[in-house]
Design a protein around this nucleic acid. Structure first.
Length: 296
DNA sequence: AGACTGACCTGAACGC
DNA sequence: TGCGTTCAGGTCAGTC
């Protein structure tokens, strides 16, 4: 399940291996994988061919390859891995993976960029770059990413503004952590881990949080994702760009996620699993007591 | 306007 | 053995 650290691992791998390369051919094998490109797969391919990959950027779980340059109005190849997406660099002689959805071929004859996605929740599109925020920083993001908040590892991430925005919400803390327009990059796994580190229950109403508690959980999220990145980063020295986290090492370090009935690493109490938003939440009932007035 | 739900998708694991 | 059910969960259109 790619969340911020996994996407960042991919970004680094791509930056090392596709920057400066010119696209000569694009094959789209599954229309759903380019559904965000409303002009269709032919237009998608046409906007890539002939262009050279510039910088490789990321915000939250979104990743994009600047085409030619980063100026507003220029195009970028935007990608989201969804649940099962992978961006692989593979030699043209390597057999096509079963779930190969899009192939990008480069002029130098080197390894192809292959978008592989079993469940097709992810996707690619070509999107125009726009100014990142009102301030004239010169930073640009694809139009489709403009509504996504900065993530906790972004140097320009504003903790105090995020704390204020969080406390203005009328929702539960875990919902808020998963809200990509409030703070991006956090998914179900790192939300549970951050809540555990901050000793807070996900049903705590955001409006009732102290600023200190809100800061604590955001700091915990940044910390756990930084640690995961450190471990995920060990495996991308080859042309194979690992994306889905399956071969990452961080799962050994998870305190509560997926650890139902196992002892909490801090106090030994059995970790609980609960259903939440059609998925699962894991927490320690001792370290993270349910609030007296939980947000439903 | 903001909060929330359901739909999308495939394959593995499980129960009977 | 096989069939049906559940689970994994990121995002956004649609609803209230």
């Amino acid at each position: 399940m790619p969340e911020l650290p996994e996407v960042e691992v991919v970004r680094r791998g791509l930056a090392d291996h596709v920057q400066g390369r010119r696209v000569v051919r694009v094959d789209v094998f599954h229309p759903r994988s380019v559904r965000r490109h409303v002009a269709g797969d032919l237009d998608f391919a046409g906007r890539l061919v002939g262009h050279t990959v510039g910088g490789v950027r990321r915000r939250g779980k979104y990743l994009w390859l600047e085409l030619d340059d980063a100026a507003p109005g220029s195009d970028a190849l935007l990608g989201h891995l969804g649940m099962s997406g992978q961006l692989l660099l593979q030699d043209e002689s390597a057999p096509d993976p079963v779930h190969l959805r899009v192939r990008v071929v480069f002029a130098d004859g080197g390894p192809e960029l292959r978008f592989v996605d079993q469940r097709t929740f992810g996707g690619l599109s070509v999107d125009e770059l726009v100014g990142a925020d009102a301030a004239d920083s010169g930073e640009t993001v694809p139009r489709a990413v403009a509504h996504i908040a900065r993530d906790p590892l972004d140097p320009a991430f504003d903790v105090e503004a995020t704390v204020s925005a969080m406390r203005r919400k009328r929702t539960g803390l875990k919902r808020a952590l998963l809200d990509q327009t409030l703070v991006s990059g956090i998914g179900n796994i790192y939300a549970d881990e951050a809540l555990w580190r901050a000793r807070l229950h996900g049903a705590r109403p955001t409006a009732g949080l102290t600023r200190a508690a809100a800061r604590r959980v955001l700091a915990a999220a940044a910390e756990v994702m930084t640690e995961a990145l450190g471990q995920g980063g060990t495996s991308f020295d080859t042309l194979y760009v690992n994306v889905n986290g399956q071969s990452g090492y961080f799962d050994r370090s998870l305190a509560v996620y997926g650890q139902a009935d196992r002892p909490c690493p801090r106090c030994g109490t059995a970790v609980l699993r609960e259903s939440f938003m059609n998925r699962s939440s894991y927490f320690c009932p001792s370290c993270q007591p349910r609030p007296r007035r939980p947000h439903p």
